[in-house]
Amino acid sequence: MKILVGVKRVIDYNVRVQINREGTGVVKEGVKMSVNPFDEIAIEEALRIRERGDASEVVAVGIGPSAAQQQLRTALAMGADRALLVETEDELQPLAAARILQKIIERELPELVILGKQAIDDDCNQTGQMLAALWGRPQATFASDLKIADGVATVTREVDSGLETIEVDLPAVVTADLRLNEPRFVKMPDIMKAKRKPLDTLPLTELGVEMPAALEAGVCEPPPKRAGGVKVESVEALIAALKEKGVLA
């Protein structure tokens, strides 16, 4: 069985994100970039499935600029067998990413696709769901446990009311939640081995994917500064103040 995992290059979670001077987005130049943490969990899960003998190959797929090869090398160092970068300088929205992944699925024919439930840059939480719909296969999102047996994935999902366990026929799309696993530390020999593993690049233009520009970013600005609190003299004044703020009717 082959598993495809998505690897998105995002601003590292430790970076204090700054809005650019033009107010059109955030500063990405010279900022540390990393693998989306949920994607790391997806990679780890795929590796564990392979190590249990339930899969034979793990392929890491990224979409992004040439520099995104570094994040794919991380996936290879963790243990992925090979990697593929769909190269583009464009900012992609979830539907475009899903369409690209669908094209890769047509080439690679995986039986399981594991993605992070969302990326920590735009927090869309849409690509996995859209991909399953485009592919016409089942989806099991927000996975906190995943078992594979006899062509069926048994997935425990984190839902608002608690945990829900479902079975989906493979091939299917699973998206990883935070508690699915704890990704391993990458060790030096694996970093060196990753240099020799195959990492192919493919220009986006070769895939023939139509890119619907459905959403346009307007203005980007930091949240307003918190104003200092005020002291009120009496209960009546408190209630009046709450009403004025629209907190009480």
Binding site: Q18, K32, A77, I191, K195
Partner: peptide, 24 residues
């Protein structure tokens, strides 16, 4: 951003991906 200044990112030409990966 001062955080990046404090961090003094590993960008000199001497470093390759293996150095960045090891550091991370």
């Amino acid at each position: 951003p001062l955080d990046d200044a404090v961090e003094l990112r590993l960008d000199p030409p001497l470093y390759d991906d293996s150095h960045r990966s090891w550091q991370e």
